[in-house]
């Protein structure tokens, strides 16, 4: 029997900063999609005269594809040689915040996505707050859409200093800031030649770098009593 470790990761951040695209790209670049899935999404986009988006791999609902947004949290199953993951894709719109909270409460670690060009927005901060309140200690910031700022180290560093300062206020010490372009695949599964100045891990390496929570049996003892009942049928008197 295989005894693989399993871990839940949530991906959060402001609307349109590219959360679903990060996951879609990660699934595509690691060969985690079922055969034909990528082609069928490409075909769907072609038929509907829309540019292809990795996000459509996750935004499965018709309303989501029509509006180009994530409405509800989706679970995706993903594995590396180290362990199995459930990646929880949370919506970035303010009106779907309760869906984001639902997703985040199940996670051990969070990837917080920020658009390099747009910078820090309302929900970047709000999601940061919530992640902190839910007690998620391991947070990595993904500075996305680096291609739109010519992979500028200065832009990357200004986000580190500005957002890092905010996160400190809400008691989050990010493990890393990773410069990425989810759409083009930079630093997702492979190191990007466009960010030679960056020496940290890729998103994929970072996932395996997270520390999973302790086994329940290593934690203080808790015994939940859910209900009391007795079944006496068939002479059972337990």
């Amino acid at each position: 029997m295989d005894t693989r470790e399993q871990m839940n990761i949530v991906i959060v951040g402001h609307v349109d900063h590219g959360k679903s695209t990060v996951i879609g790209r990660l699934l595509a670049d690691t060969g985690s999609l079922p055969e034909g899935k990528l082609d069928s999404v490409k075909e769907y986009c072609r038929k509907n005269s829309r540019p292809f988006e990795y996000a459509f791999l996750l935004d499965a609902l018709k309303d989501e594809q029509a509006q180009g947004i994530t409405i509800d949290t989706a679970r995706c199953f993903f594995k590396t040689s180290k362990r199995d993951y459930i990646i929880i894709d949370a919506p970035g719109h303010i009106e779907f915040l309760k869906n984001m909270v639902t997703g985040a409460s199940r996670a051990e670690a969070a990837l917080l996505v920020i658009d390099a060009k747009e910078g820090i927005k309302e929900n970047s901060k709000r999601h940061g707050h919530i992640v902190s309140m839910l007690g998620i200690k391991q947070v990595v910031v993904l500075v996305n859409k680096m291609d739109l700022v010519d992979f500028s180290k200065e832009v990357y560093e200004s986000i580190i200093s500005e957002f890092g300062e905010f996160l400190q206020k809400v008691n989050i010490k990010p493990i890393n800031f990773i410069p990425i372009s989810a759409f083009n695949g930079d630093n997702i599964a492979q190191k990007s030649p466009n960010t030679l100045w960056y020496e940290g891990p890729t998103v994929l390496e970072q996932l395996d770098g997270f520390v999973n929570k302790k086994e329940n049996r290593q934690l203080p003892f808790r015994m939940p009593v859910q209900d009391i009942y007795k079944f006496t049928e068939e002479g059972d008197d337990r």
Binding site: A60, L61, D72, A74
Partner: peptide
């Protein structure tokens, strides 16, 4: 199960 199909991945 959530892994079966897109709309099931969004269930509570």
């Amino acid at each position: 199960r959530a892994d079966e199909e897109g709309s099931r991945s969004k269930e509570r």
